[in-house]
Design a protein around this nucleic acid. Structure first.
Lengths: 252, 252
DNA sequence: CAAACCCTGTTACCCGCGTAACTGACACTG
DNA sequence: CAGTGTCAGTTACGCGGGTAACAGGGTTTG
């Protein structure tokens, strides 16, 4: 049907970076809805500035695993550039995506739990990452009350979001859950031009379905339903273009 | 069918308290399965000792609300005695229980997120609670590295558990989810005698179904299915009696 | 003591969505 | 260029579980 879909081998990175850098504040939108991305933005101005930037940077390509279920290192990851999906995968291959992080966010707040990792992070495109041991992060926040509070805030926002998703999964149907996911994606990694907001990262329907917790086929039809109503569209490159306002109203 | 069910007006508190005090460590079981209660136990030895016990204690009776969705106070609650359910309730009345906490646990780690509460806590029976403002907790953990780490650990364990539940809700059927809930309940608030473990708090099927995220009717039949297999039973008082080993094996 | 209430147990209907199975459209590869 | 892989779109079928409705037993209240 549609044309111009970028597949994995295509490399849309250059054109993206300029976008994501452009509106790194996302300020105009984050005030409504499920707005945990506002936090990451606040946080970005603080802890990320404190972490010395002369640490060693690791680079991950699309689909490369940053950390895997079962790892034991207690390290935070600071995203210097790029997009990352955080999720898990069960023994029988079922995959679920918990969240998507972008430039400036931190990844793996879960590392503080004493146990082996139960989640994994995978790069959605070329990504630059700085790994910082938990101990050093603790050192830093222990000296600075604001940073301490914000670290806690990060964790609690993740928790609140997870609870939100539990609610959605328990009580909402697939379309509503999809709308929620799209709204969140739009706020987290969208760059808007007027009424429309285009996502700065390319996500397959499969990945979206793993965020919605539904079959890819169902998401496909649901996505087209929203498309016919003008709430969703594809850019010429295949990226999702959202009408956040209309999607917000759909949650009635 | 069964007889001797205590309903809300009945007051089974005295008989319970002796139990919950008896095995406050729960140590023998927490090493297997989803074991986030181990954390609470570790934690109990530390932060709870540091919080001065001469603070004012508030008492809540069964079904009284400790804090409600929308509240803005940023306070931790330390459970000095009793059982509490943490959950949420949507506008249209749908209720979901995130977790159950017992004597020695803390409640409302979510308060650290800067926003209004999205969750609520309700006493499952007579409960003694000490409220501590977030700021004071921060003061304390800032001076003590171990406490800081353990506070983070608490939050992350909650997060990990929430993610686990997302997985379960996405991929498991009702019976399996029920088994998971029962296992967790058994470890958190069970006191065992030999092979069997009796829950120290009375939960209605309605409440259990709100933990499983399913209809009460479905949970009822699922519970009876497990009962016919000898994995579950009711005590003469109507409390649940579990065979944790058998339940664990059910997750095959 | 009867009436009202709460909780558990159970059954029949029905729909949302998972399952399976294909099709069509690009985009790389040799 | 044919061959292969990936991803989006679509449909028929069937089942798990939500919905609704009711029964039975126990406890509480007047």
């Amino acid at each position: 049907m549609r044309i111009g879909l970028p597949n994995q081998k295509t490399d849309p990175r250059e054109s993206l970076m300029s976008h994501s850098q452009m509106d790194s504040t996302t300020g105009s939108v984050t005030s409504s809805g499920t707005l945990s991305s506002a936090l990451a933005t606040m946080f970005r101005g603080k802890l990320c500035d404190v972490i010395p930037w002369n640490r060693s940077v690791t680079i991950f390509e699309r689909d490369q695993v940053i950390y895997e279920v079962g790892d034991e290192y207690q390290t935070f990851f600071f995203l210097r550039k790029g997009f990352v999906k955080v999720g898990s995968i069960t023994e029988d291959g079922h995959e679920l995506i918990y969240d998507v992080r972008k430039t400036g966010d931190i990844v793996e707040e879960l590392c503080a739990s004493g146990q082996r990792r139960r989640d994994r992070a995978v790069a959605l495109e070329r990504t630059e990452v700085i790994a910082v041991p938990l101990g050093e992060v603790l050192d830093i926040v222990q000296k600075n009350r604001d940073l301490l509070q914000e670290l806690l805030q990060i964790c609690c926002e993740s928790l609140a979001d997870a609870y939100d998703r539990l609610n959605a999964l328990a009580f909402s149907d697939t379309v509503r859950r999809l709308v929620r996911v799209l709204l969140r994606l739009g706020m987290q990694l969208g760059h808007s031009s007027g009424q429309k907001t285009e996502l700065s990262a390319y996500l397959t329907q499969e990945e979206i379905s793993q965020m919605v917790a539904a079959r890819r086929e169902t998401v496909s039809t649901a996505l087209n339903l929203l498309r016919h109503r003008g709430m969703v569209d594809y850019s010429h490159r295949g990226y999702l273009v959202l009408d956040l306002q209309a999607l917000q109203n759909y949650t009635d």
